[in-house]
Nucleic acid binder design. Structure first.
Length: 614
DNA sequence: TCCCCGAGCGCC
DNA sequence: AAAGGGCGCTCGGGGA
């Protein structure tokens, strides 16, 4: 190293010295070049201006590279040369190790133009390893998946303690909020540099530790999950085109609607309102709404688990239908407000300068490895609704296609349990709900019986008992138990399989899914083992389909993944073949049971697919 | 004041 | 015999 004039920070990690080199001048980069030459595998991390890579003002501030004992912090925000060498390091490295790599690699593509495929091909994501070791969150009895939690459990509790709250502390000292911190902190802030420099070191060390802890049965999933992560990074990067004009108009319309209903409310409860300014009345506070309903004479409330009066949509709808103007106004005002904020305005805020929204996909979020999507919370959009889905449109010259699995979870249940009757039912295209209905109610079962049976069929997948069936169908407990008994009689293999999984869970504390994934099961809730197995296996049916789609070059057309559904933007002239290709790639056969797919082609907007049925 | 986390709701 | 699984979003209470 030249002259020893470079700024360095020292830390002790698990008893060993770690040297953090802070690049301040371009000359300091010579030492970095040597470091990269010496170390073909590099821990990698970035500090940025914010969490949304595609925001207009997104910038990299620092880029950090490290090994177990040494790291380099490059001020990429202010130095072209630092940015150049960061890019060279990413290009020449044989291997990269990052924690939640999708963020840093999408950043590398956005900021440096390095294609996601190039970096992912040599990256090990310690988040993926962590989730394969133990998929549980810290709240669920696992270690958790943050760098801090993993460091505490596997490397050095003291370091984890130092990391914990350090950003909050630094933010307070700088007089900014935690959110503002990332933009506000000076590039050479010592605490920030220490925090930044430590991350690639920790990721580097974690790889060695976690790789050895991935269960034997799950080792094959390491590559597979990295493939899925890379594909989903690309889907995030693609983004979904927003119809800005429509979205803005819808937001404005909802704003007016909310105002209208709020005016009604003011008239209705003016004398009773405990809030001086009616605008202080928070309609999302069920406590406040309950108070107002009580003021106007409504007394009977169901209770929530914590003993609060229950004010849900069901209650408001029922009261509104009975002519309660307050309930109607609250319901409508709430809905308008929620929809405006949660959907339309959120989309507008998320969109990049090209009008595309980039959902962030957490490929292994749930303890069953189910994915979750934030940014475009596609999984929680109002069901069957076109109004919100009209916000998203296919690219110019494209149309929207959607392909979903038909009754995936029940079919996976048939395959996994091996139940003969259920397998035969699917093979012969029989209606499972009728079958359960006839088993419970006899050969004369009617449409009403079928509805109840449907609840029981799905309830079985979710591990629900008779109580839930009673709640959902309104039938009495004895009938619910009878239908469940009917289910068990019709499909004896399901109960057998569930019992087997439960005893496995009680004995070992975990089950192993069809892909070899280990899922820990709380011994007190061993009954959930069946649901975990089905949910996780279903997720892997989609995961395998995703990889097949990618191999066929379909990734650029994919827009959203929603548990059992894929949304794509396809060129008009190829929409039919494209949708069929997607459907074929997704289609699966599991232990002899087909999981068929159902392709649909709509118009320019996603919402168009939700208008025909109505 | 800020922020974390539980409660409540709604989706697959 | 009995057991509803998973997530994201918003609000509000209470701790730091």
């Amino acid at each position: 190293m030249e002259g020893g004039t470079i700024r360095q920070l020292q830390a002790r990690v698990h008893g060993s010295e770690v040297l953090i080199n802070i690049v301040e001048r371009d000359e300091d980069l010579d030492g970095f070049v040597e470091f990269v030459k010496r170390n073909p595998v590099l821990g990698f991390d970035t500090e940025t201006t914010g969490a949304n890579v595609y925001a207009r003002d997104f910038r990299w501030r620092l880029a950090q590279f490290g090994t177990a004992r040494e790291s380099w912090v490059l001020p990429v925000e202010r130095s072209d040369k630092a940015r150049y060498y960061a890019r060279r390091a990413l290009e020449v490295a044989d291997g990269l190790i990052a924690h939640n790599a999708t963020f840093d690699l999408q950043g590398a593509e956005k900021v440096l133009g390095i294609p996601l495929g190039d970096t992912w091909a040599k990256t090990t994501d310690t988040m993926i390893l962590s989730r394969l070791v133990d998929s549980r969150d810290s709240k669920e009895g696992g270690v958790g998946h943050s760098l801090e939690k993993l460091t505490g459990a596997y490397i050095d509790p003291q370091i984890a303690e130092d990391i914990k709250g350090s950003v909050g502390l630094m933010a307070r000292q700088l007089g900014v909020t935690k959110d503002e911190f990332w933009q506000a902190v000076p590039l050479d802030h010592t605490g920030y540099n220490m925090y930044a420099g430590m991350d690639p070191v920790l990721a580097y060390r974690l790889k060695g530790i976690l790789a050895g802890k991935v269960p034997e049965s799950a080792r094959g999933l390491i590559r597979y999950e990295h493939e899925i992560a890379r594909i989903c990074s690309e889907i995030s990067r693609n983004g979904f085109l927003l119809d800005r004009e429509y979205t803005e108009a819808a937001a404005e319309r909802l704003r007016l609607e909310e105002e209208y209903w709020r005016l009604q409310l003011e008239e209705l409860v003016a004398e009773f309102l405990p809030w001086e300014d009616p605008d202080d009345w928070n309609l999302n506070s069920n406590q406040q709404v309950a108070e107002a309903l009580i003021y106007l004479g409504h007394q009977e409330f169901e209770q929530t688990d914590t003993g609060q009066p229950k004010v849900d949509d069901k209650l408001l709808s029922r009261l509104a239908a009975n002519g309660n103007q307050l309930a109607l106004a609250v319901k409508e005002a709430k809905k308008a407000g929620k929809w405006r904020q949660t959907w339309f305005e959120a989309f507008l805020a998320n969109a990049d300068e090209h009008g595309r929204c980039h959902a962030s996909i957490n490929t292994m979020q749930a303890r069953t490895a189910r994915m979750s999507i934030t940014g475009i919370p596609a999984q929680t959009l109002p069901s069957g609704d076109a109004f919100v889905r009209h916000c998203f449109v296919a690219d110019e010259g494209h149309v929207i296609a959607s392909v979903d699995y038909a009754a995936m979870e029940l079919r996976v249940l048939a395959a996994r349990s091996g139940d003969k009757a259920m397998r035969r039912a699917f093979a012969q295209g029989e209606d499972l709900h009728w079958m359960t209905a006839r088993a419970a109610f006899g050969p004369d079962a009617n449409e009403k019986h079928r509805k109840i049976s449907k609840v029981v069929n799905f309830g079985r997948v979710y591990g629900g008992g008779p109580k839930v069936v009673v709640e959902q169908t309104g039938i009495d407990m004895a009938t619910a138990q009878m239908v469940i008994a009917g289910f068990d009689a019709a499909y004896p293999g399901v109960k057998r399989y569930s019992d087997q999984l439960q005893s496995e869970a009680r004995r070992y504390g975990y089950i192993t899914t069809m892909t070899g994934r280990r899922l820990y099961v709380d011994r007190k809730r061993a009954y959930s083992a069946l649901n975990y197995d089905i949910q996780s296996s279903s997720r892997d049916v989609l995961g395998r389909g995703l990889i097949r789609m990618d191999k066929k070059g379909l990734t650029p057309y994919l827009r959203l993944l929603i548990h059992d559904e894929v949304v794509a933007s396809l060129p008009v002239e190829h929409a039919e073949t494209g949708a069929l290709m997607i459907a074929r790639c997704m289609k699966a056969t599991l232990g002899g049971v087909e999981v068929p797919t159902d392709p649909e082609i709509g118009g320019r907007s996603w919402g168009s697919l939700y208008e025909m049925a109505a």
